[in-house]
Design a protein around this nucleic acid. Structure first.
Lengths: 246, 246
DNA sequence: CGTGCCTTTGAATCTGATCAAATTAGGTGG
DNA sequence: CCACCTAATTTGATCAGATTCAAAGGCACG
């Protein structure tokens, strides 16, 4: 028997949507996730959700908006280490590592669900498969870091930006937040720079190059990708590292 | 009652040594690890242990030598994404992600233990705490990637090299492979470059700068760190991200 | 005592940073 | 609905860190 209520919620619950994109969930497991006690919180743009050095007792699930993981260096420079979208749990690591070694902040007004570690642990104990899936999720996170490392270390600014746009487009698509040929990206050029190890000025120039070459159309925060194959080729983007189910 | 045989082996078993540095292990858990069926294999320098695209059925535990995780780009460039030393399991991720998105290769003749996924999973099922500890280990791996990202994105070549030397010194110390003021690093300048996103030529020049400034003494593969505090300061090295027990 | 890998040196070049300032866009209050 | 304010984008000019190319030493190993 299919639980209709469950299936209706499933679509609307970003975490089910996201986890469903990387593994199969049984109805029982879905229900367990829906049963998690959460407190929803709205976070304004540029406000931290978790800070470097914190010892969180909850995990943060992004429900709407756009969030990033970053660290501020002694000289004030910022390195953004990942963008997180609805369905993501940017500080899932806090379940196993007591102290945060980076901050998580909102790029735009976002809503997040706080899930107590205690409830999460209890659920994982009851459903070992969910434990595996969340572990898997943190490993995919790590794979994204590695892919960014490759960009930072060995790819040109032009390739790096193309690659990041591809990654975001694919990830947004898996949670239904992108059209086939584009998406909304509320990320400033300054933030792109902090993520890709580039200056804002250079990001701006390279974006212009990408536009000139017909690889992207960018109006405000609306990204359109006229030729997906081409952009993918430029960015050497191969989605294998996202480990999505086919 | 303390099991003497266990305790003798514990010191010599690099995996116990390593896991012991990030979490507490009960005697039962230690014994379970020692009981893992392994097949030991010697790998020559510059030979791959696991390759990009593989679907491994074993995990690789480094017993001796020096190993790295890397990826080759379409244009032939290589990005090294991590160095692995005795006690490390560079492809632990393969337990949860079926296809490898990078290769693991030996930098020098190394010996590794192959541990079947099946045995590992069985052990983790019996000892949930070990499951947590291995998850934790992969999260620390991810934290190292992030720290490298910061270097690649925002730190100068001079800082980046200093930081890497600090990281390796600390990690080697935790498994008893470093003296207080130095260690052996069988890493060529070319490999440093591929790890840090620098050309071999530039690595060479920066190493000379570090020597000139009295921060390191490097003869062959022997690294000596005359002033740990100073090197740490230059590299902005803060070991928090390694999440070691105090 | 070669031979091959690794390190070192030199010179020219380039990608991307920095600094400074103008323009545009988005959001707010009158 | 417009004026204003701030944040974001864009432009120009100069500078620097790191790359590339080429070639010469050094060192270890057979």
């Amino acid at each position: 028997m299919i639980n209709t209520a469950l299936h209706e919620q499933a679509w609307s619950h970003p975490l089910l949507c996201k986890l469903g994109s990387i593994a199969d969930l049984s109805d029982e497991e879905k229900q367990a996730i829906l049963d998690l006690p959460v407190s929803v919180k709205v976070v304004e743009a540029d406000i931290d959700i978790v800070q470097d050095g914190d010892r969180p007792s909850d995990c943060v699930l992004v429900l709407s908006g756009f969030v990033c993981r970053y660290k501020i260096l002694p000289d004030g420079k910022r390195q953004i280490m990942g963008f997180y979208i609805p369905g993501d749990i940017p500080d899932l690591q806090s379940l196993q590592l007591d102290v945060m070694d980076n901050s998580v902040g909102a790029l735009v007004r976002s809503s997040v669900a706080l899930i107590p570690h205690r409830s999460l642990r209890e659920m994982l104990r009851r459903f070992p498969n969910l434990n595996d899936i969340l572990w898997r999720d943190t490993l995919i996170d790590a794979a994204m870091f590695r892919e960014w490392m490759i960009g930072l270390g060995r790819r040109s600014a032009y390739q790096r930006i193309a690659h990041l746009l591809c990654e975001l487009q694919v990830r947004l698509q898996t949670v239904g937040l992108a059209k086939v040929n584009g998406c909304e990206l509320p990320i400033t050029q300054n933030e792109f720079g902090d993520a890709l190890g580039l200056s804002t000025v250079h990001v701006n120039r390279v974006l212009q190059d990408l536009r000139r070459d017909g690889l992207i159309v960018l109006r405000g925060s609306m990204l359109e990708i006229p030729d997906w194959e081409a952009l993918q080729a430029v960015g050497e983007f191969d989605p294998t590292y996202l480990h999505l189910k086919k």
